[in-house]
Design a binder for these strands. Structure first.
Length: 212
DNA sequence: TGTCCGATTGGT
DNA sequence: CCAATCGGACAG
Protein backbone atom coordinates (compact mmCIF):
# COMPACT_ATOMS: atom_id res chain seq x y z
CA UNK A 1 0.00 0.00 0.00
CA UNK A 2 1.32 3.39 -0.98
CA UNK A 3 0.64 6.61 0.87
CA UNK A 4 -0.58 9.49 -1.24
CA UNK A 5 2.09 12.02 -2.11
CA UNK A 6 1.86 15.02 0.20
CA UNK A 7 2.16 17.09 -2.97
CA UNK A 8 -1.43 16.24 -3.84
CA UNK A 9 -2.72 18.17 -0.82
CA UNK A 10 -0.89 21.36 -1.76
CA UNK A 11 -3.00 22.05 -4.82
CA UNK A 12 -5.28 25.09 -4.62
CA UNK A 13 -8.05 23.24 -6.43
CA UNK A 14 -9.83 21.90 -3.38
CA UNK A 15 -12.91 20.49 -5.15
CA UNK A 16 -10.54 18.49 -7.38
CA UNK A 17 -8.76 17.15 -4.32
CA UNK A 18 -12.07 16.26 -2.67
CA UNK A 19 -13.05 14.35 -5.79
CA UNK A 20 -9.70 12.61 -6.07
CA UNK A 21 -9.93 11.27 -2.52
CA UNK A 22 -12.89 9.06 -3.43
CA UNK A 23 -11.71 5.45 -3.53
CA UNK A 24 -8.63 6.17 -1.38
CA UNK A 25 -8.00 4.34 1.87
CA UNK A 26 -8.14 6.16 5.21
CA UNK A 27 -5.89 4.41 7.73
CA UNK A 28 -5.89 5.04 11.50
CA UNK A 29 -4.00 2.36 13.45
CA UNK A 30 -5.84 0.91 16.45
CA UNK A 31 -4.61 0.71 20.06
CA UNK A 32 -2.44 -2.34 19.34
CA UNK A 33 -1.02 -0.80 16.17
CA UNK A 34 -3.28 -2.90 13.99
CA UNK A 35 -4.62 -1.55 10.74
CA UNK A 36 -8.05 0.06 10.88
CA UNK A 37 -9.08 1.39 7.50
CA UNK A 38 -11.88 2.34 5.19
CA UNK A 39 -12.40 3.46 1.60
CA UNK A 40 -13.41 7.10 1.30
CA UNK A 41 -16.81 7.27 -0.41
CA UNK A 42 -18.00 10.82 0.29
CA UNK A 43 -16.22 14.18 0.66
CA UNK A 44 -16.93 17.90 0.66
CA UNK A 45 -14.72 20.87 -0.22
CA UNK A 46 -14.68 24.03 1.93
CA UNK A 47 -13.09 26.92 0.09
CA UNK A 48 -11.65 29.17 2.77
CA UNK A 49 -12.19 32.90 3.15
CA UNK A 50 -14.73 33.29 0.34
CA UNK A 51 -16.92 30.36 1.35
CA UNK A 52 -19.67 31.25 3.82
CA UNK A 53 -19.89 27.64 4.93
CA UNK A 54 -16.21 27.49 5.89
CA UNK A 55 -14.89 28.15 9.38
CA UNK A 56 -12.34 30.49 7.82
CA UNK A 57 -14.97 32.57 6.02
CA UNK A 58 -14.01 36.23 5.91
CA UNK A 59 -10.55 35.40 7.17
CA UNK A 60 -11.71 34.16 10.57
CA UNK A 61 -8.69 32.75 12.34
CA UNK A 62 -9.14 31.31 15.83
CA UNK A 63 -7.56 28.69 18.06
CA UNK A 64 -10.00 26.15 16.67
CA UNK A 65 -9.33 26.63 12.94
CA UNK A 66 -5.70 27.75 13.15
CA UNK A 67 -4.42 24.54 11.55
CA UNK A 68 -6.44 25.19 8.39
CA UNK A 69 -3.98 28.01 7.61
CA UNK A 70 -1.11 25.53 7.52
CA UNK A 71 0.17 23.85 4.38
CA UNK A 72 -1.93 21.04 2.89
CA UNK A 73 -1.53 17.57 4.33
CA UNK A 74 -2.46 18.35 7.93
CA UNK A 75 -5.57 17.08 9.70
CA UNK A 76 -8.24 19.44 11.03
CA UNK A 77 -10.59 17.88 13.59
CA UNK A 78 -13.30 19.90 15.27
CA UNK A 79 -16.12 19.13 17.70
CA UNK A 80 -19.80 19.93 17.06
CA UNK A 81 -23.23 19.47 18.56
CA UNK A 82 -21.69 18.67 21.91
CA UNK A 83 -20.92 15.11 20.89
CA UNK A 84 -19.41 14.61 17.45
CA UNK A 85 -16.03 15.11 15.83
CA UNK A 86 -15.48 15.89 12.15
CA UNK A 87 -12.42 14.85 10.14
CA UNK A 88 -11.01 17.31 7.62
CA UNK A 89 -7.89 17.35 5.44
CA UNK A 90 -6.17 20.72 5.07
CA UNK A 91 -5.35 21.59 1.44
CA UNK A 92 -3.37 24.21 -0.47
CA UNK A 93 -0.28 26.29 0.33
CA UNK A 94 0.18 28.07 3.69
CA UNK A 95 -2.37 30.82 4.48
CA UNK A 96 -4.89 29.19 2.16
CA UNK A 97 -7.40 27.76 4.65
CA UNK A 98 -9.23 25.31 2.42
CA UNK A 99 -10.18 21.85 3.69
CA UNK A 100 -11.85 18.63 2.57
CA UNK A 101 -14.38 17.10 4.96
CA UNK A 102 -14.52 13.29 4.97
CA UNK A 103 -18.21 12.43 5.25
CA UNK A 104 -18.35 8.72 4.48
CA UNK A 105 -16.09 5.69 4.46
CA UNK A 106 -16.64 2.00 3.64
CA UNK A 107 -15.09 -0.29 6.30
CA UNK A 108 -12.14 -2.35 5.01
CA UNK A 109 -9.89 -3.42 7.92
CA UNK A 110 -10.44 -3.48 11.69
CA UNK A 111 -14.19 -3.90 11.38
CA UNK A 112 -14.51 -5.69 14.74
CA UNK A 113 -12.94 -2.71 16.49
CA UNK A 114 -15.26 -0.36 14.61
CA UNK A 115 -18.20 -2.41 15.85
CA UNK A 116 -17.00 -2.18 19.44
CA UNK A 117 -16.54 1.55 19.22
CA UNK A 118 -19.92 2.06 17.60
CA UNK A 119 -21.67 -0.29 20.02
CA UNK A 120 -24.68 -2.08 18.70
CA UNK A 121 -25.41 -0.28 15.46
CA UNK A 122 -25.98 -2.16 12.23
CA UNK A 123 -23.06 -2.69 9.85
CA UNK A 124 -24.44 -0.19 7.37
CA UNK A 125 -24.40 2.51 10.03
CA UNK A 126 -20.81 1.97 11.16
CA UNK A 127 -19.16 4.71 9.12
CA UNK A 128 -21.86 6.29 6.94
CA UNK A 129 -21.50 9.86 8.21
CA UNK A 130 -18.83 12.31 9.39
CA UNK A 131 -19.63 11.85 13.09
CA UNK A 132 -20.04 8.09 12.81
CA UNK A 133 -16.72 7.48 11.11
CA UNK A 134 -14.84 9.50 13.71
CA UNK A 135 -16.29 7.23 16.41
CA UNK A 136 -15.47 4.08 14.42
CA UNK A 137 -11.87 5.21 13.83
CA UNK A 138 -11.36 6.68 17.29
CA UNK A 139 -10.74 10.15 15.89
CA UNK A 140 -10.99 13.00 18.40
CA UNK A 141 -9.41 16.41 18.91
CA UNK A 142 -6.06 14.82 19.75
CA UNK A 143 -5.76 14.27 15.98
CA UNK A 144 -6.05 17.97 15.22
CA UNK A 145 -2.84 19.22 13.60
CA UNK A 146 -1.42 15.78 12.84
CA UNK A 147 0.28 15.30 9.49
CA UNK A 148 -0.84 12.64 7.02
CA UNK A 149 2.84 11.78 6.68
CA UNK A 150 2.96 10.74 10.34
CA UNK A 151 2.09 7.61 12.29
CA UNK A 152 -1.40 8.24 13.65
CA UNK A 153 -3.41 8.79 10.46
CA UNK A 154 -2.76 8.66 6.74
CA UNK A 155 -4.30 8.00 3.31
CA UNK A 156 -3.23 5.34 0.79
CA UNK A 157 -3.97 4.55 -2.82
CA UNK A 158 -6.67 1.90 -3.02
CA UNK A 159 -9.23 1.94 -5.86
CA UNK A 160 -9.63 3.96 -9.00
CA UNK A 161 -13.09 5.42 -9.32
CA UNK A 162 -14.21 6.29 -12.83
CA UNK A 163 -15.86 9.64 -13.53
CA UNK A 164 -19.08 7.83 -14.39
CA UNK A 165 -19.29 6.49 -10.84
CA UNK A 166 -18.89 9.86 -9.17
CA UNK A 167 -21.87 11.98 -8.19
CA UNK A 168 -21.74 15.69 -7.40
CA UNK A 169 -24.13 17.89 -5.48
CA UNK A 170 -24.57 20.60 -2.85
CA UNK A 171 -23.07 20.15 0.61
CA UNK A 172 -24.99 18.86 3.61
CA UNK A 173 -26.02 20.78 6.72
CA UNK A 174 -24.90 24.27 5.72
CA UNK A 175 -28.18 26.00 4.97
CA UNK A 176 -26.88 29.06 6.78
CA UNK A 177 -24.34 29.65 3.97
CA UNK A 178 -26.61 31.62 1.65
CA UNK A 179 -25.56 31.40 -1.99
CA UNK A 180 -22.69 29.10 -1.11
CA UNK A 181 -25.13 26.50 0.22
CA UNK A 182 -25.93 25.48 -3.34
CA UNK A 183 -22.41 25.09 -4.67
CA UNK A 184 -21.64 21.60 -6.05
CA UNK A 185 -18.77 20.84 -3.72
CA UNK A 186 -19.96 17.51 -2.38
CA UNK A 187 -18.66 14.35 -4.06
CA UNK A 188 -19.63 10.73 -3.53
CA UNK A 189 -19.42 7.29 -5.10
CA UNK A 190 -22.71 6.64 -6.79
CA UNK A 191 -24.67 3.80 -5.23
CA UNK A 192 -22.28 3.17 -2.34
CA UNK A 193 -24.22 2.36 0.82
CA UNK A 194 -21.80 4.21 3.11
CA UNK A 195 -22.64 7.58 1.63
CA UNK A 196 -24.32 9.56 4.42
CA UNK A 197 -27.33 10.74 2.46
CA UNK A 198 -27.68 8.91 -0.86
CA UNK A 199 -31.16 10.21 -1.50
CA UNK A 200 -30.04 13.59 -2.70
CA UNK A 201 -29.78 13.36 -6.47
CA UNK A 202 -26.65 14.33 -8.27
CA UNK A 203 -26.63 16.85 -11.03
CA UNK A 204 -24.23 17.69 -13.85
CA UNK A 205 -21.10 19.57 -12.95
CA UNK A 206 -21.20 21.61 -16.13
CA UNK A 207 -23.00 24.52 -14.47
CA UNK A 208 -20.09 25.11 -12.17
CA UNK A 209 -16.44 25.76 -12.70
CA UNK A 210 -14.75 22.72 -11.26
CA UNK A 211 -12.04 20.62 -12.77
CA UNK A 212 -12.67 16.92 -12.93
C1' DT B 1 -18.98 36.00 31.83
C1' DG B 2 -23.47 35.15 29.14
C1' DT B 3 -25.79 33.79 25.23
C1' DC B 4 -26.52 31.55 20.99
C1' DC B 5 -25.85 27.84 17.92
C1' DG B 6 -23.74 24.24 15.30
C1' DA B 7 -20.10 20.96 8.49
C1' DT B 8 -24.88 15.29 13.32
C1' DT B 9 -27.18 11.49 14.96
C1' DG B 10 -30.68 8.36 16.57
C1' DG B 11 -35.05 7.80 18.23
C1' DT B 12 -40.30 9.33 18.00
C1' DC C 1 -39.87 15.98 13.55
C1' DC C 2 -36.95 16.85 17.59
C1' DA C 3 -33.92 16.39 21.65
C1' DA C 4 -29.20 15.53 23.12
C1' DT C 5 -25.14 18.09 24.78
C1' DC C 6 -21.16 21.28 25.20
C1' DG C 7 -17.30 23.91 23.10
C1' DG C 8 -16.49 27.88 20.31
C1' DA C 9 -17.45 32.52 18.68
C1' DC C 10 -18.68 36.80 19.84
C1' DA C 11 -21.03 40.48 22.31
C1' DG C 12 -20.92 43.20 26.46
Amino acid sequence: MRRLSSKLFRSEDTPAIARSLLGKLLVVPGPAGERVSGMIVETEAYLGVTDRAAHSYGGRRTARNEITYAVGGHVYVFFVYGMYHQLNIVTGPPNHPHVVLVRGVEPVEGIDLMRERRATVAYKNLTSGPGKLCVAFGIDRSFNGKKLSGKRIWIEDYRDISAADIAIGPRIGIDYAGEDAGRPWRFWIRGNSFVSRPRIESRPAKDENISL
